[in-house]
Amino acid sequence: MSAWEELGDRTWVRRYPEYDVNVGLVVGSEGALVVDTRGDLEQGQQLLADIREVTELPVRWVVNTHAHFDHVFGNPAFPEAKSYAQENTAAAVAETVAIDISFSVAKVIELGDRRVEVLHLGNGHTDGDVVVVVPDVDVYFAGDMIEESAPPSYGEDSFPLQWADTVDRLIGLLTATSKVVPGHGAVVDAEFVRDQNSDIGTVANTISGLHHNGTSLEGALAHAEDWPWPQAHLEQAVRRGYAALGAPPRPTLPLLGLEKDE
């Protein structure tokens, strides 16, 4: 059974075996804030019970890092809390989960004697990714922009060509002592984030290079070299990248050795 891991003053993460998902908990003088709520109502209710192991303060705020079900469908277990998400996330889950407060770029949530900052740094895993920052303890809940227990997940709503630039903005906020909580897996540091982002950048550059060279989508999907992760894992990355870039240019034939007409 998982347990709470304290990352700093009144700041915890709990790693659940279902989907290997991480949940964050930040407590201030006026209540508790939860980062992501697991995959359904029952899991959310179990999370609420688990929170009572470390605090009896009410859960007044919920922040969802993105729209995927394993991070947001537990929200109904917290009916007294105000839920926050980036506006694209709120739109994506509107038919299944209500978000109380949506925003475009940034939101500050005051917990009484401390604050939490919620930042949308750009597109990556989805178009609604946010990083939840706890400044006084140098902790960053990064959602699925960063993953530790598996390669980053490129789904049908990912942005493989923009992802590395978005993580670069996160890296710009980190210090040598920052603790970064990925959406799935163990807590990591800034060096891990930099290393993983190098691989994310390699995926983007390989897709762009194949496209620039006139490789068809089918050819790119069959390309077996240069990838940092298994080719099969990157099918949607290639498809999404090519969709963003449009039809590849037609390869041109070299004209060397041909005489010009006089």
Rank of each mutant, 00 (worst) to 15 (best):
A3C: 11
E6V: 08
E6F: 04
L7V: 05
R10S: 03
R10N: 03
R10V: 00
W12Y: 15
Y19N: 05
V23R: 01
G24C: 04
V27T: 07
E30K: 14
G39R: 12
G39D: 07
L47V: 09
L47P: 04
L48S: 10
L48M: 10
E53L: 15
E53T: 14
E56D: 15
L57G: 06
R60S: 12
V63W: 00
T65R: 08
V72Y: 04
F78I: 09
S83I: 10
Y84L: 06
A94H: 07
S102A: 15
F103A: 07
I109F: 10
V116M: 09
V118F: 02
L121C: 11
L121A: 07
G122M: 07
H125K: 11
D127P: 01
V130N: 09
E147D: 12
P151A: 14
Y154I: 07
Y154Q: 02
G155R: 14
E156L: 09
F159W: 13
P160V: 06
L161M: 08
A164M: 02
T166I: 12
G172L: 08
L173H: 14
A176T: 15
S178T: 07
A186D: 13
Q196L: 13
Q196M: 13
V203K: 00
N205Q: 14
T206K: 01
S208L: 11
N213Q: 08
S216G: 04
A220F: 00
L221W: 00
H223R: 04
A232T: 12
H233M: 11
E235T: 14
A237T: 11
R239Q: 13
Y242K: 00
P251D: 01
T252A: 12
L253S: 10
L255M: 10
E259Y: 12
E259I: 10
D261W: 12
E262W: 09
E262M: 06
